[in-house]
Write a protein that binds this DNA or RNA. Structure first.
Length: 335
DNA sequence: TAAATTTGACCTCG
DNA sequence: CGAGGTCAAATTTA
């Protein structure tokens, strides 16, 4: 499964990212120059989106350029970083899972929102196990796709809180979603059911005195986040703005310019990353990807599209785009 | 009552 | 043999 990507492919990817970044800048300038005639709130919203887009490009470029180095929030790779690194570099996975695409995402729990993107990535997961990991402070939760039996979807993920930084959640994804649950992704950012799962277990274990309280606090924080995000964007954005952004995304991540992108059933893994990014302007440590993730992304030139970045090409209709940025949707505000 | 979670037992692999 | 991963019965939740 572990394939090397050529320098040409890497350069091409970098060029595409650079181009996309430049386009985003141009869009930013265009929006800013035209915003004088529109409402100030609209321009601030646009700026917010553009900032996030540019930030995403910056991170992607940084990760590519430092391909040989793990990227970590605080410069001190977590235990999971090391395990994952070893896993890819030195220890081939078992035959069972050798063919399964695998990548890791690290998601920082937004301090202000309590939102854990890792636990709400738009897919429906069912927990099937939990294990105490040797040397780890926090147990590892094992999740599989809810539609495993119905649709034979073999996607799984492991969720574990970082030892060194308990605000960091590491999500280890395995396998692609072959199920069709795009509509479920309407629940992105708003599912409060899954949020406490990991926390509950961990707080029961580590803070037996106040587990329930912590859960409620975090749920409330999510609700606040949802409400604030909706307030900000609901009142500020216009349809045209959305369409502009949407068109830009389509251009920037067009399959025509990304030869290794192929249609896939996976569509919202990307937004494992997004909730915190959109919930906080803090770009430090909100989302972390390991080298192995990039390796995984780039090592699957034709078929693996689970990678967060690559799934951009799947937003081929407005509905999906609204799913990604659901701040304007009724579902978003009502849940 | 169906679906989801919990958790101890069991399996696999290094 | 031990650690990690999965199974499945019991329990909880909606």
């Amino acid at each position: 499964m572990e394939l090397e990507y050529t320098n040409g492919e890497q350069n091409g990817l970098i060029n595409e990212l650079i181009q996309g970044k430049e386009l985003a800048k141009q869009l930013c300038n265009t929006l800013l120059s035209s915003s004088s005639s529109s409402s100030p709130s609209s321009s601030s919203s646009n700026e917010f989106l553009i900032e996030k887009i540019l930030s995403t490009y910056e991170k992607a470029l940084t990760m590519l350029n430092s391909h040989s180095n793990l990227i970590s929030t605080n410069g001190s790779p977590s235990r999971s970083d090391l395990i994952h690194d070893d896993e890819f570099k030195h220890k081939p996975p078992s035959n069972k899972r050798k063919t399964m695409p695998k990548w890791t995402e690290k998601v920082k729990v937004c301090s202000q929102t309590g939102l854990e993107g890792s636990l709400d990535d738009g897919y429906c997961w069912r927990k099937y196990g939990q294990k105490d990991i040797l040397g780890a402070k926090f147990p590892r939760g094992y999740y599989r796709c809810t539609y495993r039996n119905v649709q034979g979807c073999l996607a799984t993920k492991q969720v574990q809180k970082s030892d060194e930084d308990p605000t960091m959640i590491e999500v280890n994804y395995r396998g692609r979603h072959t199920c069709t649950q795009s509509k479920n992704s309407n629940k992105v950012f708003s599912s409060k059911k899954k949020l406490p799962l990991l926390e509950k277990n961990q707080f029961h274990k580590l803070q037996n005195n106040q587990p329930q309280k912590q859960e409620k606090i975090e749920q409330t924080q999510v609700e606040i986040f949802n409400f604030e995000a909706k307030l900000e964007l609901d009142t500020n954005t216009t349809t045209k703005d959305d369409d502009d952004i949407f068109s830009w995304f389509l251009e920037s991540f067009s399959p025509d310019t990304e030869p290794f992108i192929s249609p896939s059933t996976s569509e919202s893994d990307l937004f494992c990353l997004s909730p915190c990014q959109f919930g906080s302007s803090n770009s430090n440590g909100i989302v972390q990807t390991s080298e192995s993730e990039i390796t995984e992304i780039l090592s699957a030139p034709t078929s693996v599209t689970n990678s967060p970045i690559m799934d951009f090409d799947l937003f081929l209709d407005k509905e999906d785009f609204d799913t990604v940025f659901p701040f304007n949707t009724p579902e978003y505000s009502s849940s």
